[in-house]
Design a binder for these strands. Structure first.
Lengths: 160, 160
DNA sequence: CTATATACGTCAACATGGCTGTCCAATCCG
DNA sequence: CGGATTGGACAGCCATGTTGACGTATATAG
């Protein structure tokens, strides 16, 4: 076996590990700033995820949010109760189907979400700017292909 | 205000939200398969991260691993104890500095890590293949720029 | 109208994996 | 020698996920 041979297998593994590591550290870095803002409100990342998607799709139903987050009803229930206790989220009964609860941010919730989003925005937009538009397109393409086909529709649906 | 105007601000926010969402769902999907293999051993993601980096850099010291993972000594201690109880990781005393413990996978640990890596590899490599080489380069570039400058050196150091 | 399915909420118990604070032993180095 | 560093350990707490079991309101099919 050749020492450090540039075999396809070796190259492939190295490329994969690079992707794994960049995703891990990039993801970690993106959320590092958020945690501080959340802690000031006594909230955690789970609350942020709910706030984020409710901001993104006002009047989303509970079950839609459950499907997006991929957690159990009980876990989400706790989070939504805490958010509504703090007056950040409110829900109204659905007009067509009165079993549904349509979720919305209150003005206070919208303000908090905007503040947290700003932390994400500043980090991602400077990464976009330094990388250039072509790289951003590649970044999106790889990630889209990483998502399971059956989930892709749900994710794409979020962007209009 | 024009309906759906292509204002720079609107475009920027939409591009940022797209990145946030793709990162979240892509990252989630990448690790979904891993959890099952880990559960069979009674291990969690925290164990996998330790296994992964020890595999990547054999003879890494405990404090190097702490810096990479960004967790506390106590949290890592629990994980390392569980891994060494199961015979997956072993440590030897450093040659130069005898206070250091150099971490290594046992053959069993290496086998498990390889099996878990295979799950990552199959998902990421098919995303790479579908996206194409140009997109992969962009994917790497954006993520590298997303990592804080002071962390970049540590991450780059992992890839040789 | 009745039966069944769905959407949502809730109680209880438990696991994982972070955290803080504190203390200690071995070792290195000036 | 004495202070700094590396690593390990004990105790307790918190956030956020899990299962399982139930209950209520509403929709919908037969």
């Amino acid at each position: 076996m050749a020492v450090q041979s540039a075999s396809p297998l070796f190259l492939r593994e190295s490329e994969i590990r690079r992707g794994v590591e960049l995703l891990y550290f990039g993801y970690s870095h993106l959320y590092r700033g958020i945690d501080e803002g959340l802690a000031r409100q006594g909230l955690g990342r789970a609350h942020h995820r709910a706030l984020y998607f409710i901001a993104r799709r006002p009047d989303m139903t509970v079950s839609d949010l459950l499907r997006i987050l991929g957690i159990t009803k009980q876990s989400l229930g706790r989070v939504l109760n805490e958010l509504s206790d703090r007056g950040l989220v409110e829900s109204r009964t659905g007009r067509e189907d009165r079993r549904q609860r349509l979720l919305r941010l209150t003005p206070e919730g919208a303000t908090l979400e905007a503040e947290l989003f700003e932390a994400l925005r500043s980090k991602l937009s400077s990464a976009y700017a330094e990388a250039g538009q072509g790289s951003v397109a590649g970044f999106w393409t790889v990630l889209e292909n990483l998502i399971a086909p059956d989930e892709r529709a749900r994710v794409a649906d979020l962007q209009r």
